[in-house]
Every structure is written in structure tokens, then in C-alpha cells.
Design a protein around this nucleic acid. Structure first.
Lengths: 145, 145
DNA sequence: TTATAAAAGGATATAAATATCTTTTTATAA
DNA sequence: TTATAAAAAGATATTTATATCCTTTTATAA
């Protein structure tokens, strides 16, 4: 499973994208409220994402978070990689040692299929594609209470 | 990803099974050494597994850990469930809310395939099947240094 | 220019996961 | 029946992830 921080990051980026499409640059408070995460913690996560150039930020009045031109095809892989590294894409899923194609753990062959499937999703899906399916109403970002 | 504790648990159980087949009941020290985990921590994990009846233990001289008659078809799912619950089998993989077949997050359909694949492995694979493939030499438990 | 709004940065706090240590209970062999 | 070997139990420590708070920097509008 992805860490809570990574999940916040993904949800935050999707929300920022949605707002950007409405010509808005949301601030920390607005993002935190929308993704249902603590504000100060959200600030830290957004700071990390901006520092790694996954999206951009503007300080001062009228500032906020937004995507620049070259940040439009950000993949889930990029986000996961920045937030928690990529162990989930190469680690043995059951903690069994010596696990690779040449020297497989007893579950290797089956698990690799699952792990590669996850990798494929992460590499293929982009923040903007997710955002678009939400914008179109095909899916939702938040809990429907 | 599974927690470190869960990984230790799986490796420990496989090792115990292998030793049991040699008519031995390994103790904490032997298990810890084999799975390359801290001894005191290994003790706690084995205690948890025994308390939940995933395997059996004998105190006193000549004691150790072993599988009883009704514990032979222990699945990975059972181990994961006891060690960390089963969130990994039902949670949305990307932290997007409102995620189920009726009210899917944008990734739901793709991710469900991956998650169900993992569930299938966990429900199907047993400690004794893993152990057997190691016994036969088809796979290894430990790092080949 | 100054007041204000906003993110960045740094320091600290809390909770959860991982790890260790000591004492107690239990079983067996001598 | 006693000494010993072993797991169980309980208390504590350390580390990592999650979360909060305060100060600094930066940009803009008045």
C-alpha cells in the first residue's frame, strides 16, 4: 500500500489540476480542505512536490499552486517516486529474499504479474487524465457522504 | 507493500515448516538467525502468531515452534490478516475516496485487477506450499550472498 | 512604500512501527 | 525435586511516519 502522504499528494495534485482548469490557483487551505488532510501537513507535502518540480507554486498575494507547461503529463509513478521512493515496484511482495527472475522466491512468478500491473498503471496514468475523468463526472475525488 | 513484521512472519513460518519436516522444533534464536531479524522482535512476532493459533508453541526444555494437524493449510492471507489486518485487500490503491464498483475512483477498474490478483495469491498460496518449493530446491528463502 | 497574503523553511510534537530488555511461567531432563 | 531450557508477558526504548507550530521570505495590492 502507498503511504498516507503519497495518497494525500495524489489527491492534492488532482485537485490543483481541476482548479487550474478553472483558472484558479488554490492555496494550502483550500487544498487541505478538499483532500481532507491536516492543513500544516498538506503544506509540507505541497512544499515537497513543488521542490521536486512536480508542480509550481507562487508566493505572495494571489499566489498558490499550479501546473506549468512542462508539468502536464505528470504520472502517478513520478508522484510515488518523489514521495516514498520506488521500492513498491521492485521489492519482493512477501519479504522473501533472493527474488528476481534468475533466483526467484517461491512466489516470484505470480507476484511479478501483480507488481508489473501496478507499475503499468502508475507509469501510464497521469494526474491530468485522472482529473479529466473527474471533471467529466465519470469518477469522484471525494467521499460522497 | 506488506509491513516488515508481516514479512518476518511469513519467512519465520516457512522456516518453521521446513524444520518441522526434519522433525525439529526451532526456537526463537534459530528462527531469528535464519530470517535475519532481531531476536527479541522475532520473539514478539512468533508470540503473536502462536496466540492467534497460526502455529503452535511448546514451552520448556525441548520446546519450540511447530505446526499442529489443523494448521497445515495456513494461507498467506491468514498471516497478513493477523499481522496487519486486510486493508491492502480492500483499500483504494491511490487514496482516492469513494471507491467501489458502484462509485469508482478514476483508477478503480484497473486497480481492482491488480488488487484482486494479489488477493488471489494470498488466498491460494500456503506456507506449506512455499516451504515445499524451497525444500525441492525450486526457490530459496534466504539471500544468496 | 507599506500592509497583507501567501508559500518556504525550520523546529518541535505525536503516533505508530520497529526493536530491546527483564521477569515470569512452564516443561523437561537430570 | 531441582536446575535448566524454553516461550510468554510486560515494560521500555528507538526510529519512522504523521502532524503541528512558528518564523522568514516573497509578491502583490492598496
Amino acid at each position: 500500500m502507498l503511504s498516507k502522504s503519497t495518497e494525500y499528494a495524489i489527491r492534492a495534485l488532482v485537485f490543483i489540476q481541476l482548479r487550474n482548469w478553472e483558472q484558479k490557483r488554490p492555496g494550502v487551505g483550500e487544498v487541505a480542505r478538499e483532500i481532507e488532510a491536516p492543513e500544516a501537513y498538506t503544506a509540507k507535502i505541497l512544499q515537497t512536490l513543488a521542490k521536486h518540480k512536480l508542480m509550481d507554486s507562487a508566493k505572495g498575494r494571489g499566489g498558490g499552486f499550479f501546473f506549468g507547461e512542462n508539468q502536464s503529463s505528470l504520472t502517478l509513478y513520478d508522484v510515488i517516486h518523489v514521495m516514498e521512493g520506488d521500492a513498491c515496484f521492485h521489492k519482493c511482495g512477501f519479504g522473501l529474499k533472493s527474488c528476481n527472475d534468475h533466483n526467484p522466491c517461491p512466489l516470484h512468478d505470480k507476484y511479478v504479474v501483480v507488481r508489473d500491473g501496478f507499475f503499468e498503471i502508475a507509469k501510464t496514468e497521469t494526474i491530468s487524465a485522472l482529473s479529466d475523468s473527474i471533471r467529466r463526472g465519470d469518477a469522484v475525488l471525494n467521499r460522497i457522504v
